[in-house]
Design a protein around this nucleic acid. Sequence first.
DNA 1: TTAGTGACCGACT
DNA 2: CAGTCGGCCACTA
Length: 107
Amino acid sequence: MKATTLASNQAKSEIILMTLSKIPRGKVSTYGDIASYSGFPGLARYVASILKNLPENSTIPWHRVINSQGRSSFPKNSTKYLQQIYLLKNEGIQFSVSEQVSKAFFW
DNA sequence: TTAGTGACCGACT
DNA sequence: CAGTCGGCCACTA
């Protein structure tokens, strides 16, 4: 056995999910930042994979997570894309003309 | 074990 | 400013 990691793979998911659930309403964050805040810099793609696998009934605010460009990671006009922006606007987050979130709204 | 993949990121054209 | 490219690391076949 190799005690290479300080946290087991299973615990990583737990910690990241905990961080996600702490994003305050009306704020957004990026995949990379979530990973860093959780203590795992460089695991942005892993954060994304977790959100992708979230069940519908999850309490995790997945819509508050966007990419480093301040934009939704979904293809333009896709159902998920429109839904994410709708939810964020509903929380008071403002977008530029190109559907980009101002850094002022970053967590 | 190796190879391919991804709701990413930053540097570089 | 927009498009490419390489690096990143966990997951899956």
